[in-house]
């Protein structure tokens, strides 16, 4: 069955998570600050040592190299990091007719943003550009950590629309950590909460 399956995943803060997201499913995750939401996403992306296995479209993670896995299961961290001087240097292997321009326009940017210096970007702009950077890999599953936390309502809507379009077009499984109860209800789908080191349905 296509989708993302967590098989006995344990982190420092979570006990034995078994969870299946079918292809195209969006699942919201919430929980108190420090309850281990980000750690769970990091474990799925294989960024920290942990126990358990993750499957993507019936392919176990251990069968792929870590770079392959992380390209297929894309994690958008809560805080974006940039290592080069300009925005454009962060686009991985820009090819001719690159889809980056379409992504930038959909996120409300001028195409020229690629030439901008990182230092002149606001936190919200960085967050949106980090999403474009991630989607360029065409991930088959998405792990979103507070994807819209730093955005005003206009840009929040842009990001939500882009993610919904992407999910619909690619049947992407989406594990989305969100602090915004209104957003979780408005967009719909399954909602889980981390409580006392376990995943429970959100009441």
């Amino acid at each position: 069955m296509a989708g993302l399956r967590l098989d006995g995943l344990s982190t420092a803060l979570l006990r034995e998570v078994d969870l299946t997201l079918v292809a195209g499913e969006r699942l919201f995750l919430s929980g108190a600050s420090g309850s281990g939401k980000s750690l769970l996403l990091r474990a799925v992306a294989d960024l920290d040592p942990h126990r358990g296995e993750v499957w993507l479209d019936e392919l176990p993670r251990s069968r792929l190299t870590p770079p392959e896995w992380r390209r297929r299961v894309g994690l958008l961290p809560a805080e974006s990091h940039w290592w080069a001087e300009t925005v454009g240097e962060h686009w991985r292997a820009p090819t001719a007719g690159s889809p980056i321009e379409a992504l930038l326009v959909a996120l409300g940017f001028d195409v020229d943003v690629s030439n901008w210096a990182i230092t002149r970007l606001s936190t919200g702009e960085r967050q949106r550009l980090a999403l474009a950077r991630l989607l360029l890999n065409q991930p088959q599953a998405l792990l979103l950590d507070e994807a819209t936390a730093n955005l005003d309502s206009v840009n929040r809507e842009r990001v939500e629309t882009m993610l919904e379009d992407y999910r619909a077009a690619h049947a992407t499984a989406m594990l989305w950590v969100s602090h915004d109860p209104e957003q979780r209800v408005r967009l719909g789908g399954r909602r889980l909460v981390i409580r006392e080191n376990r995943l429970e349905p959100e009441p």
């Binding site: 870590p66 770079p67 992380r70 961290p77 990091h81 290592w83 991630l134």
Partner: peptide, 14 residues
């Protein structure tokens, strides 16, 4: 530079 190194790993860098 932990954040930057991990950001690159997350984008599929070796």
């Amino acid at each position: 530079a932990r954040g930057c190194i991990e950001a690159r790993l997350l984008l599929g860098a070796t």
